[in-house]
Amino acid sequence: MKLQKLIILFFFILIGFAGISQNIMEPKDLIPANDEIVNWQLIDSVNTYTDEDLYMYINGGADLYLEYGFNKLGSCKYRNRLASKIILEVYQMKNDAGAFGVFTINSSGKGKKIEIGNEAVQYDYYLHFWKQNYYVRCASTVKSEGVIDTLQQLAKQVASKIELPGKKPELFVLFNKTGYPFKQVKYFKGQVALANIFNFSHGSVAGFNEGISGKLDDKMVFVFSYENEKQRREWFASLKGKMNMSMLFDQYTTVEDGFTVKDRMGIMLSFKPVGKYILAIKGMDWPEAQPVFEKTSTNLP
């Protein structure tokens, strides 16, 4: 009976490995060849970068991708007869959440949603999308008529070669269950991304595994998730100390189990610990924040 169970387990492990090898493709294999894009030619070959080699490709800003769990990049340039260039980048992240996270942080909220991959947004000279554990971006070096069609064509070619749609992180799903019409939702894994959303005084909110933020009109709601409640307690104590001393915030006030501060523009921020989470709301004082804290935290496990 034991042996039977072991065989079954082994069988499932084999299936699992087979599944992974089927779904994970090399970024360079996702890049369309010359004959796949009309009127555009690949310049040189596709360059591949792995892990910290990314610093050799991105002239500043590699930290962001590494923070999200960067694995491998395939990058190339196309040129047309007018000498315009398109840069195509296929980032393979360690998991779907990483690809989704990069997509959210790189989305300004001003683009137009289009149907490519899992989610895609198009701007006037570039577009980006995520699918499975890939984040893909293609950009033109000039704004010109017709280039968007080519960008879309390229993106669709790449997306068609990626097998699975990809799964959004659980924290995102729970965040959306609040029913609030959050805009510009950002999923983040560390300080670099967080600083690009809102500067909580240089690393004062720290130690979290993952986090999510969303805009509610001019307000902003943050959820920081920690390994466990004990860790959260330690980091919350540290956060209180740092915010109390911060040059960027003042009027630190302890309220019930949380606290409030005001930023340099006079905007109130409220912080509340809930289980293994820290919730923060920018733009609401403590009484106003309570129902939002409550509604958000009821969905958190």
């Binding site: 002239n59 500043g60 790189n106 300004s108 570039y126 950009a139 690009n196």
Partner: peptide, 11 residues
């Protein structure tokens, strides 16, 4: 660009 820097593309 005001985001996605320093390499862009961005807003």
């Amino acid at each position: 660009i005001t985001d996605n820097g320093p390499s862009g593309p961005g807003t």
